[in-house]
């Protein structure tokens, strides 16, 4: 005790709320699901790669398993054939979990108002942040991620205490 306190000096006391401390942890190290659908996934890869370096925001680690991920970035056009798969991936993720709809297609169907494309990922899963662009620039995606961080900072752990309802598709 004596040695530690003499080395560290007088640290004082930090007071914070549990919500703030937990949200700080949640935003500082999000694990996105390693998941790409179409063109936007390539820009997502650019965001992770050397120039934009997503690890600055604690997100360099993509988990290939939805069980270990807490952020689903729907990067690309969502087809009717793929929709049940994405819904299942979302259901498999453990709460708390968030969704970013990256690109026009994932946000609203984009230019494809036709038989094949789901008109926005929010038709099958709840979306937290929409990022516009076809494809969005890496800066735009970064902005989307930071917006999500802001949103998370306003959340309370009580919000996630109730079990999330799952829907079978």
């Amino acid at each position: 005790m004596g040695i530690i306190s003499s080395k560290l000096g007088n640290l004082g006391v930090v007071t914070t709320t549990l919500d703030q401390a937990i949200n700080w942890g949640r935003t500082g190290a999000m694990w996105p699901l390693l998941f790409g659908l179409a063109c936007c996934a390539i820009e997502y890869m650019s965001t992770q790669a050397s120039n934009y370096d997503l690890s600055r925001f604690g997100m360099e680690l993509n988990r290939a398993s939805p069980r270990q991920a807490d952020l689903l970035i729907v990067s690309g056009r969502l087809t009717r054939k793929m929709a049940p798969v994405v819904r299942q991936l979302y259901d498999q993720m453990a709460a708390p979990k968030w969704v970013i709809a990256m690109g026009d297609c994932a946000s609203c169907g984009g230019v494809y108002n036709n038989y094949a494309i789901v008109q926005g990922a929010d038709e099958i899963i709840p979306v937290d942040v929409y990022v516009a662009g076809c494809p969005p620039r890496p800066e735009q995606l970064l902005h989307g991620i930071l917006t999500l961080h802001e949103k998370i900072k306003g959340e309370s752990i009580r919000d996630w205490a109730a079990p999330v309802e799952t829907i079978r598709v």
Binding site: L37, G76, T79, M82, Y112, A116
Partner: peptide, 11 residues
Amino acid sequence: IGFLHTGIEKN
């Protein structure tokens, strides 16, 4: 295949 069928040709 077909998980990314977008109907581009039809569009």
